[in-house]
Nucleic acid binder design. Structure first.
Length: 566
RNA sequence: GGUCGCGUAGCUCAGCUGGAUAGAGCAUCUGGUUUCUAACCAGACGGUCAUAGGUUCGAAUCCUAUCGCGAUCACCA
């Protein structure tokens, strides 16, 4: 509708204006004529600021310009426009015909696939990587935000019609993984002595994993217990372990498999998250792929050798210091494999999305510059940094460190508050904002808890629908004259714009805000206006049916249930 | 110190591609169920949108500086 109005204004201006200061090409430019939904019903349904924009070029009072436009447009009889008002300092407010505004109700009820409206014209192959938590333990509440955001983004992009490929990047090599393996080994041989130079993982799951491996490895490990027990330093422990224990790598992979399958994948299943693929970092090394990329970097003159290590010249791009690609002990850094991983993705997809914790912010330019340096178009890559979420219970902040083992698993939170609440609260705030998550709010069963509030609206409507026959809905917009009905119609009319904006800017919280507002408006309506009286008012039934359908679609988008009974 | 994010009501936050009187929930106070689900509704109270400049018809929104909070500055990932 706003586009219709925009076109009406545009053609009027192009036809009538003879002022040489107005450039027709300028007027037709995308975004020059703005028509937006009003936020206040006194201002009609849509408004345009074009008069104020033109006042400068025309050197004329914007209200006068507005009056001219109003006169011109009303003289041309546009059937959908009921009235136009000019308000200071120069807004042109459009009032839409009631029947036109109310037609949204039947539009929604008849529409079998509401999301069809949001299909994109340009279909892309999109790769989206999220969670990618180190497989060193179960997912904890700190991982929840990236997880839910990633899932929701994938849902939204799929609704837009893109080919979406979701991937979990498994860091299955490196120091953290060695520490994990050693933590399990220490548990296996009951050697609970900490190292001087490194903290081991201490969570309960470590002994669970160890127990699972007991039969297979215990005897073997006991043989080496004495030779290992003399070491108090992690590096030498690992060294002798790797030398003595030639199946160390097999052991390490087994530990990771157990953690992924017994913990991480189950946690994800509970939240209805499936990945198209689990990509193991080690795959990048297998066929020397990383070394090919390193060679590429070298050939561009972007790396050099110093102190036995290979360095990337990141200072060339404004970094404080150059960064290591290959360590002096010839081990690859995460940075090196990551460049390889991203080049692989950029080769294959139209667009790649990474969802990372905000603690990676300093890393973003480094990676981007390295990729740009070897010739990739990094505009095809977008990185969403997510601020941390703090969990509170009774106003008290809860800790979440994987290493110490004193963390709350995502699973235990899901068990306590349910997946609906998890799905809602993690995306209800924009990702740049720190998130304080109070468990009591998610547990409360009243207005304090927006999830219940929205679901309750849905269930209430369901009860109404069950009481009437909806086979023959006589809808007459003239019956919807109550201000609260008009408010609901306004909201229904804005759902397309809201969801479009949320999808285009990848901001799911715009939709949850909208759903809450719609529920609020419905509850108020419900309390004040009788829908089923002596006689059934089918126009009102239709109206709330449309509301319910939008609520349900919105909730489903976030994997939140829309209960029919509460 | 450099970099990134954030400072909006007592609390938790919406709003930020510049628009008209800055909005919700909680808390506090006052009302409302013989009625389609009170897990609800109606009302009151509550604001120098951190501060100071700038940009312009118009700034919570954009720019600059300052202050405050958080994150980050590894041959960890």
């Amino acid at each position: 509708m706003n586009i219709e109005i925009k076109n009406i204004i545009e053609s009027y201006l192009l036809e009538t204006t003879s002022d040489e200061n107005i450039n027709p090409r300028e007027i037709s430019k995308e975004g020059y004529i703005e028509v937006q939904k009003t936020t206040n019903e006194l201002h009609g349904d849509y408004y345009s600021n074009i008069a104020m924009k033109l006042s400068k070029v025309l050197k004329k009072n914007p209200v006068d310009i507005g009056e001219d436009i109003k006169k011109g447009l009303l003289g041309r009889k546009h059937p959908q426009i009921k009235n136009i008002e000019i308000k200071k300092p120069g807004f042109i407010n459009f009032f839409i015909e009631d029947s036109k505004r109310a037609s949204i109700v039947t539009d929604i009820i008849k529409n079998n696939n509401i999301f069809e409206k949001f299909k994109t014209k340009i279909k892309k192959n999109i790769h989206i990587e999220f969670v990618s938590a180190n497989p060193t333990g179960p997912l904890h509440v700190g991982h929840g935000r990236g997880l839910i955001f990633g899932k929701t983004l994938s849902n939204m992009l799929r609704i837009q019609g893109h080919n979406v490929f979701t991937e979990y990047y498994v860091n299955n090599i490196g120091k953290q993984i060695d520490i994990l393996s050693i933590s399990v080994i220490l548990s296996l041989i009951d050697l609970k002595r900490p190292f001087d130079d490194v903290d081991i993982y201490k969570g309960k799951y470590i002994s669970t994993v160890a127990n699972k491996l007991k039969l297979k490895y215990r005897d073997l490990l006991l043989i080496h217990k004495d030779s290992l027990s003399g070491n108090k330093v992690y590096e030498s422990f690992l060294g002798s372990l790797k030398k003595d224990f030639n199946s160390y790598l097999v052991f390490r992979d087994t530990v990771i498999d157990i953690i992924i399958n017994d913990y991480i994948k189950k946690d994800l299943e509970d939240l209805n998250v499936q990945f198209s693929n689990w990509f193991h970092e080690s795959e990048l090394i297998k066929d020397n792929f990383v070394y090919q990329i390193l060679e590429k970097i070298k050939s561009k003159g972007l790396s050099y050798v110093k102190d036995g290590a290979v360095w990337f010249k990141s200072t060339k791009y404004g970094d404080d210091k150059d960064r290591v690609l290959v360590r002096a002990n010839s081990a690859l850094t995460y940075f090196a494999t990551d460049i390889a991983y991203h080049s692989l993705k950029l080769d294959k997809y139209d667009h790649i999305i990474n969802i990372w914790g905000s603690d990676h912010h300093g890393y973003v330019p480094r990676l981007t510059n390295a990729l740009k340096g070897i010739g990739y178009d990094t505009d095809k890559m977008s990185i969403h940094l997510i601020q941390f979420a703090n969990l509170y219970r009774d106003g008290e902040k809860m800790s979440m460190s994987t290493r110490s083992g004193e963390f709350i698993t995502l699973k235990s939170l899901a068990d306590e508050i349910g997946p609906d609440a998890i799905n809602f609260f993690y995306i209800n705030k924009k990702i740049e904002q720190h998130l304080d998550f109070e468990i009591n709010t998610a547990l409360s069963k009243d207005k304090d808890n927006p999830v219940y509030y929205i679901q309750y609206a849905h269930a209430r409507i369901e009860k109404i629908i069950q009481k009437v026959s909806t086979d023959n809905l006589n809808f007459d917009d003239r019956e919807l004259i109550d201000p609260k009905e008009q408010e609901l119609l306004r909201l229904l009319n804005s759902y397309v714009q809201t969801i479009e904006q949320a999808m285009d800017t990848l901001q799911p919280q715009l939709i949850t805000n909208y759903l809450y507002k719609l529920s609020q408006s419905f509850h108020s309506y419900y309390a004040n206006v009788k829908i089923i009286g002596e006689e059934i008012n089918y126009s009102r039934v239709s109206l709330v049916m449309a509301v319910q359908k939008i609520l349900k679609n919105g909730l489903n988008l976030f994997d939140i249930s829309a209960p029919e009974d509460m």
